[in-house]
């Protein structure tokens, strides 16, 4: 109950942060604006409006990722320092509140805030996709053959892959939030922001660190070990980056549900691990 009330307060506090509201509003605005994107430069046997829809989807997913990325970073870095600055942490910890309850409550609040933000964007995004797909029925004509018209190709309205995409974004930035939360226990917001940024970029480039540390790599063994360590420690954000596969499902995802399940577990375990470390550090932390 204590954890829950701290979480709730954190959510209320974060949702009222102007910066985060701006990120959210701008992202939603851009997603809606993307409705008007159309690609007239299209000369293919595919239906032109489908290309427009794909454009909307790739823009939407990307924008949501950027917004969620900024939200989790900006929210995460101030999570603990702000409590200290406002001295609320003192009044809370002077009450019979265990330190782990405080950290877990804060973390839960941050994840909930992220979930609310991503959900709002996700609903708008999927609505925009459906809207764009509505009435997008294209006659399919083989070009210039003079062959008889074939008919109309129906464009599907609802794309489950986009739901997976939104979930992946949430999972990805849940992990980033945990990273930043762990750092926020002992780093100042500015340093933390850049640390979080760095960890994210390294984590996204997991394939690179993987390649650099692989057996085939030409690097010095010491460097290889270094990259291997980096690869193992830094959360593999690349795991959540399935946008391309979702946009172009012809690459045959055997089971997106299975993959999402495993990646969810990965995000969960990793976040728990980071949260636990934050708890361990915070127990000994002087505030």
């Amino acid at each position: 109950m204590i954890i829950w009330s701290i979480a709730k307060t954190t959510v209320g506090d974060a949702l009222r942060k102007k910066v985060l509201q701006i990120f959210l509003v701008v992202a939603i605005g851009l997603i809606i604006i993307s409705l008007s994107f159309s690609q007239t430069l299209s000369f293919s046997s595919r239906a032109g409006s489908s290309t427009d829809i794909m454009l909307v989807k790739s823009f939407g997913l990307g924008l949501m990722a950027v917004a969620a990325w900024l939200i989790s970073l900006v929210m995460g870095v101030s999570l603990i320092p702000q409590e200290i600055e406002r001295r609320t942490i003192y009044t809370i910890l002077a009450k019979p509140v265990k330190r782990y309850e405080f950290i877990v409550g804060k973390y839960l609040g941050a994840v909930l805030t992220l979930a609310i933000n991503v959900a709002i964007m996700g609903v708008v995004f999927i609505a925009v996709c459906v809207f764009k797909a509505m009435g997008a029925e294209q006659p399919v004509t083989p070009e210039e053959t003079g062959l008889p018209l074939v008919g109309m190709q129906q464009v599907g309205l609802f794309d489950w892959n986009m739901v997976w995409g939104v979930i992946m974004i949430f999972l990805q930035f849940t992990v980033l939030t945990s990273v930043v939360l762990l750092f926020s226990v002992f780093l100042t917001p500015t340093v933390n922001f850049f640390m979080g940024l760095g960890v994210y970029i390294v984590g996204v480039m997991a394939p690179l660190t993987e390649t650099l540390s692989s057996k085939e790599s030409q690097l010095h063994p010491v460097l290889k070990v270094f990259y291997r360590v980096i690869h193992i420690i830094v959360p593999n954000f690349d795991k959540f980056n399935v946008t391309n596969t979702l946009l172009h499902p012809e690459t045959h995802i055997e089971s997106m549900a299975k993959y999402t399940g495993i990646v969810t577990l990965y995000a969960l375990f990793y976040s728990l691990l980071l949260m636990l470390l934050a708890v361990i550090i915070f127990r000994k932390k002087e505030v």
Partner: peptide, 30 residues
Amino acid sequence: KRRISYLPESPYFYEHMTGAEVIEFYCRLF
């Protein structure tokens, strides 16, 4: 800590909450 309390120097609290909500929040902590 159930029997003590603390008022820090110029505290701020959560600005978005009403006075009653803040007190209720602290009540929850007990």
